[in-house]
Simulated scan of single mutants.
Amino acid sequence: MARKDELGRLGEDCAAAFLVGAGYTVVERNWRCPQGEIDLVVAKDGDIVFVEVKTRSGTGYGHPFEAITGAKLARLRRLAGAWCAEFEPRARSIRIDAVAVIARPGLPPVVEHLEGVF
């Protein structure tokens, strides 16, 4: 596995653990359809949340949240619609969140969670 892929997997593992610790339940990981992939689908208090995870080993190329562009958010919205069409969830609300993970070598990962980014 390439280093970039290993870092991404680490970030998704950290994000999932962080969200579970905050009371969320993981519904899906790496859900795929022809339009793309959703990193995490989680649930809490009757809400379904689609989570984009961005991981970096530092901030030399910017904060991980900076990699989430308007085009990326629009694609996530389409993917969320595709997931809902397939699974027909009975949710109080649906939203898209973002989780940034900075995993510097030799240090504990830093996890940030933004709710309702789109």
Rank of each mutant, 00 (worst) to 15 (best):
V101G: 04
L79S: 05
P34S: 02
I68K: 06
G106I: 03
V20T: 13
A71I: 06
G116Y: 12
L10H: 07
C33T: 14
A67H: 09
E12K: 08
T55N: 00
A2Y: 10
F50C: 08
R75E: 14
A2M: 15
T25P: 11
L7P: 03
E66M: 11
A43I: 00
E37K: 12
R95I: 01
T25S: 14
I68A: 04
S93M: 02
T25F: 01
V20P: 09
Q35V: 03
P105L: 10
F118P: 02
R92G: 07
R29E: 07
E115W: 10
L107K: 15
L10S: 04
V111G: 10
L76V: 08
E115M: 08
P34L: 06
D5C: 05
G70R: 15
G21R: 15
K72L: 14
E52C: 06
I38N: 03
L79Q: 08
C33V: 11
V101T: 01
R90L: 08
G8N: 14
T25R: 15
V20Q: 13
F50T: 03
E88Y: 08
L40E: 00
L107V: 12
G116C: 11
K54N: 01
V53Q: 05
D45P: 04
V42P: 00
L19A: 05
F65L: 04
